[in-house]
C-alpha cells in the first residue's frame, strides 16, 4: 500500500506546530498502525530527518499509552480498539491519513503526537484509590459482592486511561474517564468509606485541570477502546448529588 500521511509536527511545547505531508510506500495491510509509523520513522532517520514522536508501550491495547487522532477519529476508524491494535487493512492503497495529537488544554502537547496526561493522574490522586489495606489478593468469598456489581465494576476497571474520551468530546470533558474510576470503586464494598469524598474530590480535580463540562453528548463512549458505557456518568452524577446533599461526606464533619 502507498499512503499519504499528514502528520502534526511540533518540536516542543512552545512551538506553534503544523501539519506536514509524508509519503510512505510498501506498507503491508498486516502492519499495525504504529508499525507503519515505525516504517516512516526509519526512513526519516536514514534521511537525516527528525522522526515523528508518538507515545506507545505495550502495543497490545492494555497500557493506554498510545493515542492518535486518525482522520478525526480517536484511535482510528475501528471501534473498540486502540491505535496500536489498529491494522493497516482498515485503510486502502492511495489513502490520505491525517494524524493529530489529542487536543485538550489539560493535555498539552510535549512533542509532535505526544501529549502530557498528568491531569488524569491528578484526578486519580484526588480520590481514585481505597484506604483499606488490601495486601495480597484476598480470599474471594470473604467479602460477598453481587455478581452484577462485580461485572459492572470490572468492566469499568477496564479503562486504560488513554484519554480518547477527552479527545473526542466536543466539550473537551474527561467525564467518562472520571466516571469509569468512580463506578469501579463505588460499586465495590472496599470503595465505600471514601465513596462521597471521592466523587467530590475527583470532579473538582477534573474541573481544575481545565477539562470542559459534560453535556452527555456520547462521543466518548463511541471511541472508547474499552467500551466504557455512558451510564457510568449517570452513576457519577448520582453519587455527586448524594455527596452534595449529605454534608456528612465532608471530612471531619
Amino acid at each position: 500500500m502507498n499512503l499519504t500521511l499528514r502528520i502534526w509536527r511540533q518540536s516542543g511545547p512552545e512551538d506553534k506546530g503544523r501539519m506536514v505531508t509524508y509519503q510512505v510506500d510498501g506498507v503491508s495491510p498486516d502492519m499495525s498502525f504504529l508499525e507503519m509509523l515505525d516504517v516512516l520513522n526509519e526512513r526519516l532517520i536514514l534521511a537525516g530527518e527528525e522522526p515523528v514522536a508518538f507515545d506507545h508501550d505495550c502495543r497490545e491495547g492494555i497500557c493506554g499509552m498510545c493515542g492518535l487522532m486518525i482522520n478525526g477519529d480517536a484511535h482510528g476508524p475501528q471501534r473498540g480498539t486502540t491505535a496500536c491494535q489498529l491494522h493497516m487493512r482498515q485503510f486502502s492503497d492511495g489513502d490520505t491519513i491525517d494524524i493529530e495529537p489529542w487536543r485538550a488544554r489539560a493535555f498539552p502537547v510535549i512533542k509532535d503526537l505526544v501529549v502530557d496526561r498528568t491531569a488524569f493522574d491528578k484526578i486519580i490522586a484526588a480520590g481514585g484509590y481505597i484506604t483499606a489495606p488490601t495486601g495480597s489478593a484476598p480470599e474471594a468469598h470473604s467479602v460477598p459482592v453481587a455478581k452484577a456489581d462485580a461485572d459492572a465494576a470490572f468492566s469499568s476497571a477496564a479503562c486504560i486511561g488513554c484519554g480518547a474520551c477527552v479527545a473526542a468530546c466536543p466539550n473537551g470533558s474527561g467525564m467518562l474517564f472520571t466516571a469509569a474510576k468512580i463506578t469501579q470503586l463505588s460499586l465495590l464494598p472496599q470503595g465505600q468509606p471514601e465513596r462521597y469524598t471521592r466523587v467530590i474530590g475527583m470532579v473538582d480535580a477534573h474541573d481544575e485541570a481545565g477539562f470542559g463540562g459534560c453535556t452527555n453528548a456520547g462521543e466518548c463512549t463511541a471511541v472508547c477502546p474499552k467500551g466504557i458505557p455512558l451510564n457510568t456518568i449517570g452513576r457519577l452524577n448520582r453519587d455527586y448529588l448524594r455527596a452534595t446533599a449529605k454534608r456528612g461526606g465532608t471530612p471531619g464533619s
Partner: peptide
C-alpha cells in the same frame, strides 16, 4: 468551558459519532 478546554482545534474532525 468547552471553548477554553480545546484551545487548538483539530485540522480533521469527524462530525458526529454519537447523536
Amino acid at each position: 468551558r468547552a471553548r477554553a478546554a480545546r484551545p487548538v482545534r483539530y485540522a480533521h474532525r469527524k462530525k458526529v459519532n454519537g447523536s
